[in-house]
């Protein structure tokens, strides 16, 4: 029997689905329509039944809800066992995941169980079934062809629009699951400081580099980020100087991001940094050095000292937001 159908593997994180999961629905729907195949999803969660309704509401034809306490926190082999059981039973041909920490590890586990080719960080799915993904640390784009009957693709967050509720509602099917005795036990979870927006799913990012000169330098950036609803990022130089945590690092040894708006402040734009953010929509560079690589590649470049400039930008945005509020 030929493998057929598209399966979205949705992993809940802290009892909710990461927003990028809904990007999988958009990508999956496009694939399903092109191939004239059904679109299904499997939700792995301690609250799968409820979360499955959200995906069904976005037009996923059939949503398998694997609800079990062992799926509350991501445990690679346990989640893989649950997802593989559904994928193998129904013989799906394409498996979509979010390319985040959990999704990438799960993709690897599933590829072996499904005897499938794997492409991670996929940013585009071509009509002929090939996919595009970063190669050589983002300096190149590779076109990947699958040779196996099953293809596993982990999609880079922010590469597809998020699906919204309103399409023809699909059905939810509960699936029983017995994890056996897992070789990994979840011990605890320590959340990041509250109200911090995650870089991966951020539509806007304000990022700082060596030019900020100190930890203090991130203060105006954080204020601007808060005003814009943006995540705060950093270059390796700023992280290595100890001004901000490693989790905020954008670039080769940090995170790859593709927000609609990337504001780089005091970042010269070493190739390692560009590798992590050059797929952003609009890039604004603010720097005193007009010739540095980031100013050269930016969509909008401003020669300015951030210390003076960022507070002025904050004032301008506040003025505008104030007037919009009045107008509304």
């Amino acid at each position: 029997m030929a493998n057929k159908g598209i399966l979205i593997v949705a992993v809940s994180q802290r009892a909710s689905l990461p927003p990028a999961t809904f990007e999988l629905v958009t990508a999956g729907r496009r694939l399903a329509d092109t191939l004239k195949e059904p679109l299904a999803a499997v939700v792995l969660s301690e609250k799968a039944a409820a979360l499955a309704e959200d995906l069904a509401a976005c037009g996923v034809d059939k949503v398998y809800a694997v609800e079990h306490p062992s799926l509350a926190n991501f445990i690679g082999p346990v989640h893989a066992q649950a997802a593989a059981a559904v994928a193998l039973k129904e013989g799906f041909g394409k498996v979509l995941l979010v390319s985040n920490v959990a999704g990438r590890a799960l993709a690897g586990q599933l590829a072996v169980r499904l005897k499938a080719g794997l492409a991670a960080d996929v940013c585009e799915i071509l009509p002929d079934g090939k996919v595009l993904r970063p190669y050589f640390s983002g300096n190149l784009i590779a076109s990947v062809e699958f040779k196996s009957p099953v293809a596993v693709m982990a999609l880079a967050p922010m590469s597809f629009p998020r699906a919204e509720a309103g399409a023809a509602k699909g059905t939810v099917v509960p699936v029983a699951f017995d994890p056996g005795s897992p070789k990994i036990q979840f011990v605890s979870y320590q959340p990041e400081a509250a109200n911090e927006i995650d870089l991966g799913g951020a539509e806007r990012i304000v990022s700082g580099g060596r030019g900020l000169q100190s930890e203090e330098g991130f203060k105006p950036l954080r204020a601007l980020a808060q005003l814009l609803g943006a995540a705060v990022g950093a270059s390796r130089a700023a992280v290595d100087s100890g001004w901000i945590a490693y989790r905020s690092q954008v670039g080769l040894t940090g995170r790859s991001v593709r927000p609609k708006l990337y504001i780089a402040v005091g970042i010269s734009g070493q190739i390692q940094h560009l590798a992590g953010m050059s797929s952003s929509g609009t890039i604004v560079a603010i720097n005193t050095d007009k010739d540095c690589p980031l100013m050269q590649m930016a969509s909008i470049a401003v020669v300015a000292d951030y210390n003076e400039f960022i507070p002025l930008v904050i004032d301008e945005v506040k003025k505008r937001k104030g007037s919009t509020a009045v107008a509304a």
Partner: peptide, 18 residues
């Protein structure tokens, strides 16, 4: 199970403004 059939440079970004 997968093959890189082709690699290409990143598409150039449109010219920016100052």
């Amino acid at each position: 199970a997968a093959k890189i059939v082709k690699a290409a440079g990143q598409p150039p970004r449109p010219a920016g403004l100052t």
